[in-house]
Design a protein around this nucleic acid. Structure first.
Lengths: 155, 155
DNA sequence: TGCAAAGTGTAGCTTAGGTTACACTTTGAC
DNA sequence: GTCAAAGTGTAACCTAAGCTACACTTTGCA
């Protein structure tokens, strides 16, 4: 190291406490990889919804619901296939594998829990639904358990 | 439309309620664009921390804290510059613009609020810190207000 | 039965965010 | 004053996620 630290190495009191570098790096890394799973989770959840509600899940419907072009949806669906979450044959709709269904279930439960907690905290239901969409992908198992506990205790 | 709907259009009762397509599309779209701001927010927050704590914010330190290579950090810093959030001259460290500082302040307040709420809900502080890192970028103003209210009411 | 319209798939492009490899500055220390 | 090591910057590459444009299937209906 050629450059000396130009300021004290301690005293972070002005800011919200700087954890050890390793810890923080691990944290941010986890946040970023969560983002890569988030989209797949959204697709899987939506496909499960469409299959349950409409009996089939077609790329165009998926695209419309997600607000993306059908080409984007199709590309994501092939990533889903690569990840072993879905199956799809040309012009024949999209289906979930066992793994995909399991993920969809977990995602749905988690979504519900997040929305319920937000509402319990006084967030209007519309905002709760909207924010949950983004928040849910970043809620750890530990936090999920605390949420369930909180709701139970609160009755 | 050439293909008839193969199942009822109503009755989504088995799943967690499907909102109108437009609404859901808008929601997902918002979630995705939030992700594009998330990284910039992380950088700005970290740079503010480093400036306050160390007196300077250097690409290598930023990279280490975020767990990415220095090259990645440098590229992100130039995006920060493009967004008018930071300034940086070669070999001279990174600084925040007024806009960057304002964002950093908002982000820090929001982070604190999210962590506090999670802890209030019974989430262990380590998990609260970790999850907040991902969650905070998806919390709307409305939800933020509800959080503040909740904490106040709870004392 | 055939054909137009809807849906589907592919190709080619963009940006963000990440990497490794390599070259160039800075600076503390001898 | 020099020089090696640390830090910095750039280039070339990758994948994900988005887009538009265009070609190809399917299918309901005239």
């Amino acid at each position: 190291m050629a450059r000396s630290p130009s300021a004290s190495d301690a005293d972070h009191s002005a800011t919200a406490k700087l954890p050890a570098e390793g810890t923080q790096a691990r944290r941010f890394g986890k946040t970023r990889s969560a983002q890569s799973t988030a989209l797949l989770e959204d697709y899987v959840e939506l496909i499960a919804d469409l299959l349950a509600g409409e009996g089939e899940a077609r790329p165009t419907d998926i695209a419309r619901r997600l607000g993306v072009s059908h080409a984007t949806a199709i590309k994501s669906i092939s990533r889903l296939k690569r990840a072993g979450l879905a199956t799809a044959r040309p012009y024949r709709g999209v289906f979930l594998t066992d793994k995909g269904r399991a993920l969809a279930d977990r995602v749905r439960v988690r979504h519900r829990l997040v929305v319920d907690v937000l509402q319990a905290l006084g967030v209007p239901s519309e905002a709760a639904e909207a924010d949950a969409e983004g928040i849910e992908h970043h809620v750890s198992e530990t936090t999920l358990k605390a949420f369930a506990q909180f709701l139970k205790a609160r009755g």
